[in-house]
Simulated scan of single mutants.
Amino acid sequence: MDIRLAEAIALHYYQAAQRDGWTALVQAVADALVDLDAAERHAAAQGRLVSHGYARAPLNG
């Protein structure tokens, strides 16, 4: 990730939290955990599709 993008995201959280660094950090981590959970659920759903034979390509290439 580009450091400038990370800084822009951090600044957004900081400003949204009325310049309260702790609140901004907690909100950023909470949002990241929600995104991680969604990604894990998506990956699990994809795994179930593969295990049910919906993937037609061979696994080794």
Results as ranks from 00 to 15, higher is better:
A45Y: 10
V50W: 13
V34Q: 07
D35G: 10
A32Q: 03
M1H: 10
D35N: 10
N60K: 10
Q46N: 13
A43T: 02
I9Q: 09
A24Y: 00
G53P: 00
A38G: 12
E40S: 01
T23N: 04
D2T: 12
V29E: 00
G61A: 15
Y13A: 02
A30D: 05
A44E: 15
V50L: 15
A43Y: 04
L11Q: 07
A30K: 07
E40D: 02
G61W: 05
Q27N: 15
A6W: 07
A28V: 08
Q15R: 06
G47W: 07
G21L: 08
A39F: 08
P58T: 02
D31W: 01
V26F: 07
P58N: 11
I3Q: 07
A55K: 13
G21R: 08
G61V: 05
L49T: 03
R19D: 09
D31S: 06
A38H: 11
S51Y: 10
V29N: 00
Q18L: 11
Q27E: 14
H12W: 11
V34I: 12
V29R: 03
A10M: 06
A24D: 00
I3E: 10
V26C: 08
R56H: 04
A38N: 07
G47N: 12
T23A: 11
A43W: 08
Y14E: 02
L5W: 03
D2W: 07
V26A: 09
T23S: 08
Y14C: 01
Y54H: 11
H12L: 08
A43I: 05
L11P: 00
Y54N: 04
A30H: 09
L49P: 01
R56Q: 13
M1I: 10
E40W: 04
I3S: 10
A16V: 08
H42V: 15
E40T: 01
R19C: 04
Y13W: 05
L36R: 02
A17P: 00
D31T: 01
S51F: 15
H12A: 11
D20Q: 05
L5P: 01
V34G: 04
Y13L: 03
A32E: 04
V26G: 01
A32D: 06
A8W: 02
V50N: 13
A30M: 10
A8H: 14
L59F: 13
S51W: 12
H42A: 15
Y14F: 12
L25I: 11
H52M: 10
A55C: 14
G53R: 01
A28N: 11
P58R: 04
L11R: 06
A10K: 03
A6V: 14
Q18W: 05
H52I: 13
H12M: 03
Q46H: 15
Y13V: 02
A43P: 00
D37W: 05
L5V: 11
P58A: 04
W22F: 06
Q46A: 15
G47Q: 14
H42F: 14
A55M: 15
Q15K: 13
H12G: 02
D37C: 05
E7R: 09
Q18M: 09
R19W: 06
M1L: 10
D31F: 02
A8C: 12
V26P: 00
I3K: 06
G61K: 03
A38R: 11
V34D: 08
